[in-house]
């Protein structure tokens, strides 16, 4: 474990050197930053989906909501991160808490469809907010001001994103190992048993849902600073679907799976789109094949000790 972590950190640390060597200017570094950002989002989804068994098809809502938090405050001249970021994350927490109160009362298929519907609701709300660009999106004139740290410097933004990813992974690792994490994981396979053991499962799940939403918000904040732009398409339902693909592709319920999955999916999309306009024609069946034949995800190729995912039944 320790060796893997060190190796991963080493790779992440030298990425700017490698990308500089590739000669594509900031493109490859920007692409790497995008991978890291989506890795954070996928990790946050993994918290509830991989460990908690809660299949949310609306997770991208938090991503977009936080990005809008940055964008809207910037549009009103508030560009200091000390205000922007807490407000954006608080918005995610509130949205997660309010929707969580409704969605967590349900399970299985209901849960999937309701998370989707709530995300759609938020999507339509931002599409019709004309003050903030509506469907056209909102250009963010200045990146968040973070003391002496200049986020306009691509290398800085990259390392900050990596730092956030490491923090998210560490948090996930500690959380899952804790008593709290045990209840969440236990509820995945048998909610009733956990309830019978005297755990307030609903409250635990709600907290996990909010934590995942806030963590996804961190990714949204970074994305807003990377692209200096935010639009409702950040929270379109297909984005939520892609997040799920990342988690499963990499290996759900494993710490590093979502990171691998995010990298693999984004690189695959990039390569396919470079090759053909009809890239979705190939991506679709690839996803189908992954589901059918590679249930343990990419992480299974690297780490033979990681346990096979439990065939939990949530009907």
């Amino acid at each position: 474990m320790r060796a893997t972590v060190l190796a991963a950190l080493a790779i992440a640390a030298v990425v700017p050197l490698v990308t500089a060597g590739l000669g594509g200017g900031e493109f490859y570094l920007g692409f790497a930053t995008r991978i890291v950002i989506f890795a954070i989002a996928a990790t946050s989804l993994n918290l509830i989906l991989g460990y908690g068994g809660l299949v949310s098809l609306g997770h991208a809502a938090f991503f977009g909501l936080a990005a809008y938090g940055v964008g809207i405050l910037a549009a009103h001249g508030v560009d200091t991160a000390a205000i922007q970021w807490p407000v954006a994350l608080a918005a995610c927490a509130v949205f997660a808490a309010v929707t969580g109160l409704v969605v967590l009362r349900t399970s299985g298929i209901y849960f999937i469809m309701i998370t989707l519907a709530f995300a759609q609701m938020l999507y339509f709300l931002f599409v019709s907010l004309r003050q903030y660009g509506g469907d056209d999106g909102l250009t963010i004139a200045t990146r968040s001001r973070l003391g002496p740290i200049d986020l306009g410097e691509p290398v800085v933004l990259y390392y900050l994103s990596v730092l956030c990813l490491v923090g998210s992974l560490w948090f996930c690792h500690r959380l899952v190992a804790s008593r709290f994490g045990m209840v969440i994981r236990g509820a995945r396979t048998n909610t009733r048993r956990m309830a019978a053991l005297g755990f307030p499962v609903f409250r635990y799940q709600l907290v996990a849902f909010v934590l995942a939403g806030v963590m996804c918000g961190v990714a949204g904040i970074l994305q807003a600073n990377l692209t200096q732009f935010v639009s409702p398409s950040y929270m379109a339902w297909a984005r939520s679907g892609e997040l799920i693909v990342m988690v499963v592709l990499g290996g759900m319920g494993t710490l590093f799976g979502p990171v691998l999955g995010a990298a693999a999916l984004l690189i695959l999309e990039e390569v396919l789109a470079d090759w053909t306009v009809h890239w979705m024609l190939y991506l679709g069946p690839i996803i189908v094949l992954i589901v059918l034949f590679a249930k343990r995800g990419l992480i299974g190729l690297f780490d033979r000790r990681s346990p096979p995912p439990a065939g939990g039944h949530h009907g």
Binding site: L49, L57, I244, V248, M252, V291
Partner: peptide, 9 residues
């Protein structure tokens, strides 16, 4: 399998 696989597929 669970719903997740069905969603993905």
């Amino acid at each position: 399998r669970d719903h997740l696989d069905q969603v993905l597929l």
